[in-house]
Amino acid sequence: MSTAADRLDRRALVSALLADRGGLLVIAGLGSPAWDITAAGDTPLSFPLWGAMGGAAMIGMGVALAQPARRVLVISGDGEMLMGAGALATIGAKRPANLAICVLDNGQYGETGGQATHTALGVDLAGMARAAGFPVTETISRAEDIPAARRALHTAPGPVLVVAKIATGEPEKTFPSSDGAYLKSRFRHALLGAV
């Protein structure tokens, strides 16, 4: 069993993944990952979810298929990814090379009282992605692993899935706008111009 000392700080990790992000398109799953990407610096090319649990990876896939020249990074939690676990098979079968997923895995449903998720009970999301045909899968838990994980998430021919074992505990919530129509429109305007 891992201890807090060998787990990552979620905000430091997400900030490292999103620093100097260039043209990266980012989708964040509901709850803490949406607050994390906002704390790292809100931009129009981030689409943070407040609902649609289980949908983050497939939203990322739709963007990735529409924009094959752009890199798409989905940042989500273990509970969200588990709810959409079938998407690992769907993505593995289609293999969009420009899609990367980072699962922030604290083994808990953080927004609802810290109940254990399946990953706390031995389920290996990176193993599931590997079995689904993702060519690059990694599990990281130490700060020194972050640069290589960032390279994989930003540049490796995908689909890529990185499970980042993060410490439990909730940092201060940094909320993005909850206006979904605004979040959608600003993303499209920034990506596509006037539409």
Binding site: A52, G55, M58, I59, G62, L65, A66, K184
Partner: peptide
Amino acid sequence: MKVVTLTTEEEGVALACGAWLGGERS
């Protein structure tokens, strides 16, 4: 046409939203 076989239909709803964010109809 980019054809995606789903494991469950809700994946297709999410895919459609992503497609539109990326500028494509689905």
